[in-house]
Write a protein that binds this DNA or RNA. Structure first.
Length: 581
RNA sequence: GCCGGCGUAGCUCAAUUGGCAGAGCAGCUGACUUGUAAUCAGCAGGUUAUCAGUUCAAGUCUGAUCGCCGGCUCCA
């Protein structure tokens, strides 16, 4: 649940949705009187309610529940709040056979509990609610899902109904249209339509095949990434995909990360492990030589491919996979450099992400969890540095208290795509664990050994996830610099094929990706095809162009221009590529 | 992993109560020679995810397995 976005949609909308969830629960109770109620809050763009019902709900049930809700809304019962003592409330819910409510009340610290009543329906609830059910003007039940009681997988699984509600049906319709738009932009669909990537049964779940067009986009991203890193004072490293199991013993991953690691394989009586992280390798490079305090900061970056075991049910297109390439970097620095390094990284993240058209972010600072390594003093120092860096950069952020990784505090940056959905990609983490475990050190000014600070960071997170987000962000219509085919050459008839091949060659020599499909098809069909493939430019040549040695073009956007010089057109494209627009 | 749903040609989808697996697009071949979002015709394409079972007969019913989808938990 995202509190900030609840705020942005308004407290009254939250009350409306919360009230709608009560009305839904009431309808469910009426249709299934044996139902045991769990919880039913408002969430970012709607609400849900968890139930234990004797049987599995079906989509038809949702329709019945909606009808029952509509009747209740017409009845327009008031929402009335009142208080009971804890004991009275427990007795009430015991009497009505509502064990989850009893458990909730028992866990409350207050002496009195607040309840809301409307119609005959009573629920444990802090409120607030709308005045009466009639205020619910537009709602829809969206999906049925399983959800663990109290979010713990050891507990019983309940049935959750998701729904949403708005103040007007116009807003509801807009929301539903938005959902439809999101479905159209689904990277799995676009990935198939544009032949960018696939994930196949014969290869294995969560393992991505990058097809030529996807791989081309990846190459452009990688080239950009590498060049920007070199400019920003990073050095590039490369490390293997596996290492002796001992390495993971030393790093501690076998202890705390085993569930996410694939089983080791045995080679020549030694056990090897496919890597779930890149950090130990970078540390190994560091440790291969002596380091002076003068060397810092050391910034090593790698597009490092890692493999992690993810439970089957969590895999999702490119967003959640089992093999992925992190745009990883590790920075070794002095305490005194931590803050400025963090600020550098923040600037760098913004620079890289904004190039892809991501201008809005949700930033979170995660602080020390209950279980942690390192001294509390170091944690405070590092957390303070992260905080100060964010404040100096005037970046608004939320604090996720206790949500840091056990080895250090972190800043997570979630990018917001054009559909305003947030995606976890970038992360900046201070690590107190690995330097200790690997005994990483440098020789200080005083001639003695000291422990450097280590920062992990990823800007795009993983190329797979980032690509998935990018596909949805652009809806498949990649900007020219990323488009796998930048120019589709289309001839009016096959008389013009020779000229088409000639200009294709000119495009290629100029480093532009031009395609000419010689297939004998009417130009209307070829334009349609290029348009559906979201090719940025179509160059059209017929008698007129061949005669005058010119070209005509049509942009994906609909922009058209006839009879321009090939050099002028190429200049235009090069300018557009340079600006990465 | 858990709850629920789904799995038919490369893609999108059909196939009465169990009764001969089909269409469009894409592909191939040929004809047409085209001016800004689909030219026409022919051909080919399948162990209906896999494996068992029920039945005279299974895409359809049952069970298991695999995978996918929506969530939960977990996370780049």
């Amino acid at each position: 649940m995202n509190k900030s976005s609840l705020k942005s949609t308004g407290a009254d909308l939250e009350a409306l949705r919360h009230s709608t969830s009560h009305v839904m629960a009431q309808a469910v109770m009426k249709l299934f009187p044996e139902t045991k109620l769990a919880i039913g809050p408002a969430i970012e763009d709607g609400f849900y309610y968890d139930f234990e019902i004797g049987r599995s709900l079906t989509p038809e049930d949702l329709i019945k529940i909606e009808k029952e809700m509509a009747r209740e809304i017409v009845a327009d019962h008031k929402f009335e709040s009142y208080e009971l003592s804890k004991q009275e409330a427990i007795e009430y819910f015991k009497k009505h056979n509502q064990p989850y409510k009893v458990e909730l009340i028992e866990s409350l610290s207050e002496d009195k509990v607040s309840l809301y009543k409307h119609g005959g329906f009573v629920d444990l609830c802090k409120g607030p609610h709308v005045k009466s059910a009639g205020e619910i003007k537009a709602f829809k039940l969206l999906k049925i899902a399983g959800a663990y009681w109290r979010g713990d997988e050891k507990n019983k699984m309940l049935q959750r109904i998701y729904g949403t509600a708005f103040h007007s049906s116009k807003e509801l319709d807009e929301y539903l249209e938005n959902l439809e738009e999101a479905r159209k932009r689904d990277h799995r669909k676009i990935g198939k339509d544009l032949d960018l990537f696939s994930i196949q049964d014969s290869i294995g779940p969560g393992l991505v095949l990058w097809h030529p067009k996807g791989a081309l986009i990846r190459k452009e991203i990688e080239d950009f990434w590498k060049n920007e890193h070199l400019k920003a004072g990073y050095e590039l490293v490369n490390t293997p995909h596996m290492a002796l199991l001992d390495l993971w013993q030393t790093s501690g991953h076998l202890g705390f990360y085993r569930d996410n690691m694939f089983a080791p394989m045995e080679i020549d009586e030694f056990k090897y492990e496919i890597k779930p992280m890149n950090c130990p390798f970078h540390i190994a490079i560091y440790k291969n030589t002596m380091h002076s305090y003068r060397d810092f900061p050391i910034r090593w970056a790698e597009l490092g491919t890692v493999y992690r075991y993810e439970r089957r049910g969590v895999l999702h297109g490119l967003i959640r996979v089992r093999g992925f390439t992190q745009d990883d970097a590790h920075i070794f620095c002095l305490d005194s450099q931590l803050e400025s390094e963090i600020m550098n990284i923040i600037d760098f993240v913004m620079h890289i992400l904004s190039t892809f058209g991501f201008k809005n972010y949700d930033v979170c600072l995660s602080t020390r969890p209950e279980k942690y390594v390192g001294s509390a003093e170091n944690w405070d120092k590092a957390t303070g540095a992260l905080k100060k860096a964010l404040e100096k950069k005037k970046i608004p952020y939320e604090v996720d208290a206790g949500e840091g990784v056990f080895y250090g505090p972190k800043i997570d940056i979630k990018i917001k795509d054009v559909m305003k959905r947030a995606h976890q990609c970038s992360t900046i983490q201070v690590d107190f664990n690995l330097p200790e475990r690997f005994d990483v050190k440098y020789i200080g000014e005083d001639g003695k050994e000291h422990r450097p600070i280590m920062i992990h960071r990823a800007l795009m997170g993983s190329l797979e996830r980032f690509f998935g987000v990018l596909i949805e962000h652009y809806g498949g219509a990649f900007p020219l610099w990323l488009a796998p085919v930048q120019v589709e050459i289309i001839t009016v008839s096959d008389k013009h094929n020779e000229y088409a091949l000639k200009i294709k060659d000119v495009f290629c020599r100029n480093g532009l990706r031009a395609n000419f499909n010689i297939r004998n098809e009417k130009m209307g069909a070829k334009i349609r095809e290029a348009q559906m493939q979201k090719t940025p430019y179509m160059v059209i040549v017929g008698d007129s162009e061949v005669e005058k040695n010119l070209i005509s073009f049509r942009a994906r956007s609909g922009e058209k221009q006839n009879d321009i010089g090939l050099d002028d057109f190429i200049g235009k494209l090069k300018e557009e590529i340079k600006n990465k627009k």
